[in-house]
Simulated assay, not measured.
Amino acid sequence: MDDTERQRAICAHALYLLNLLLAPGIAFVALWCCRRRWQPLAGAALREHLRQAFVAALWSGALLLLVSLAVALLGGLGNSATWVLLILYFTLVHAGLVLSGAYALSRAMAGLPCRYPLPGLWRPR
């Protein structure tokens, strides 16, 4: 991976983290635009980093929003046990997703491949 591709891989994983931490939605759209723009020109390593970051962002949104919404609807917002479960779930899953994103970012900075621990992102080597 050359220096330009490494910088783009770093940008993709940084946008994934930005989507989780500071600008949800806005950073996702930026990641989607970068993926569409860079993927046709990219080598295999950058394509994999772009795919990993984008699909991980999709999974992150589903895990955080849809599961939290389902727990809230099934448990009822007036139930204190629902709130405890929601806070624990969101905190633990969000922390895990941020840690995996930081790991992927460090791998991209080193110019190495990375795979998020989410379904659909593992491929045999």
Rank of each mutant, 00 (worst) to 15 (best):
D2P: 11
D3N: 10
T4L: 12
T4C: 13
E5F: 10
R8N: 01
A9F: 01
I10Q: 04
I10N: 01
I10V: 12
I10L: 08
C11T: 07
L15A: 05
Y16I: 02
Y16K: 02
L21W: 13
L21N: 06
L22W: 15
L22G: 13
A23Q: 14
G25K: 07
A27Q: 01
A27S: 10
V29F: 07
V29I: 09
V29R: 05
A30L: 14
A30Q: 12
L31N: 04
W32D: 11
C33K: 12
C33F: 10
C34A: 14
C34T: 14
C34P: 06
C34E: 14
R35T: 10
R36F: 07
R36Y: 03
R37P: 04
W38P: 00
W38V: 08
W38S: 07
Q39N: 11
P40I: 11
P40K: 10
G43W: 09
G43T: 06
A44G: 13
A45M: 14
A45W: 11
A45E: 08
R47L: 03
E48C: 13
E48M: 14
E48S: 15
H49C: 06
H49P: 00
H49M: 07
L50M: 08
R51G: 05
A53M: 04
F54W: 15
F54V: 01
V55W: 08
A57W: 00
L58H: 01
S60C: 04
G61H: 03
A62S: 10
L63K: 01
L65K: 09
L66H: 08
V67C: 04
L69H: 15
L69I: 07
A70F: 05
V71M: 07
V71A: 04
A72V: 01
G75M: 00
G76W: 08
L77F: 05
L77K: 06
L77H: 04
G78F: 09
N79L: 12
S80A: 13
S80C: 11
W83C: 05
V84I: 06
L85C: 13
I87K: 11
L88A: 14
L88Y: 04
L88Q: 08
Y89E: 05
T91P: 02
L92C: 15
H94W: 12
H94Q: 15
A95L: 12
G96V: 06
L97V: 09
L97Y: 00
V98T: 10
L99T: 13
G101S: 07
G101E: 01
A102V: 15
A102Q: 15
Y103D: 14
A104S: 11
A104P: 00
L105N: 00
R107C: 08
M109L: 13
M109R: 13
G111R: 09
G111F: 09
G111W: 05
L112I: 09
P113N: 12
P113W: 06
C114Q: 13
Y116L: 02
P117A: 04
P117M: 05
P117E: 01
L118R: 05
P119A: 02
G120C: 02
L121V: 04
W122L: 11
W122N: 09
W122G: 09
W122I: 12
W122V: 10
P124M: 13
R125Q: 12
R125A: 14
